[in-house]
Design a protein around this nucleic acid. Structure first.
Lengths: 153, 153
DNA sequence: GCTTTCTTACTCGGATACCTACTGTCCGAGTGGAATAGG
DNA sequence: CCTATTCCACTCGGACAGTAGGTATCCGAGTAAGAAAGC
């Protein structure tokens, strides 16, 4: 999984702590010592997914587009990684010794693809049950205070 | 996830159907129309993981190293992809605005890493509950018959 | 007939090439708040 | 004092380069079964 997921998740928690005022992307990058231009790319992905919204112009920046308890870890992962399953069945069972059978006779998904999909659904279910607000609540309040103070400067 | 996982899983089911006699890797590749040299690499990974064993020499080939009901999908995935978690926490929370805090003060894993790990455990648990024997049993018996006939030639 | 040698069909592992996706940088275009200049 | 202009800080998106890992191929070394040759 790409590093952008970790970045995006931390950024969402931070934006939740900082409230409604838009935060400049460059300052966000400085807060975690990340390459500003590349973090910008991940922020664009969050924006396209509707997780954040951004204000252009002088006092512009990024903020959460909806309350943090309505943003799940799954939302963030999907925004960065895409919605595709990790496992992609390429139907090799239809090739080689079964190349003579018509493709229409393979109506059921193969057991492997089925099991992989079921496992990924479990994974997604767990991520969907974890909200940014929940993660923020499980973090010591000093961290939030410190972040607010740091961004005020 | 790499394509090798699908190949390896299908191969394991096939080896289970074919019984104890070692099967040449090249014939295995032909059965699914896969590049023989590259499938060889995946077979080496299965062997290193102890899932299969191989016999060198003229009548050599590959076979399962243990009964198919003792081989799980998780075993196969780990053999091909490695045991590392998909999500790797790089502790960016310790950088930037928190660079002044000593690393020793971050004793608890961050909530994001914790949630990701829990989700992956769910995924692994599901894959560990799926055996090659179970997958083979859920496949129509004609497929096994056809495979045995094809390999007999 | 028995032993030895040879051939053949395999596996194993390293070296190599290619290509895609992730990582990272740079630049120009657009936008809006704030400062400034002109009336 | 009020309006219009300029400036600046910021976002957005495309173009580009570097790198790691997945995909794929080839070759030489080793091994064992079976055929062939020699005694």
């Amino acid at each position: 999984m790409s590093e952008g997921v970790e970045w995006a998740a931390h950024v969402c928690i931070l934006l939740h702590w900082l409230g409604d005022r838009p935060v400049p992307a460059d300052k966000l990058a400085a807060a975690y010592d990340l390459p500003p231009a590349y973090l910008g790319k991940q922020l664009q992905a969050l924006r396209r997914a509707g997780i954040t919204e951004s204000a252009p112009g002088r006092a512009g920046g990024v903020r959460l587009a909806r309350p943090a308890d309505k943003v799940t870890l799954l939302d963030v992962v999907v925004a960065i990684e895409g919605a595709d399953d990790a496992f992609a069945c390429t139907e090799i069972r239809q090739r080689g010794l079964n190349a003579d059978r018509p493709a229409s006779s393979f109506t059921e998904p193969c057991g492997i693809a089925h099991a992989m999909r079921a496992a990924e659904l479990q994974w997604r279910r767990h991520l969907a049950a974890t909200t940014i607000a929940g993660l923020a609540a499980d973090t010591p309040t000093e961290a939030a205070e410190k972040a607010r103070a740091w961004f005020a400067t």
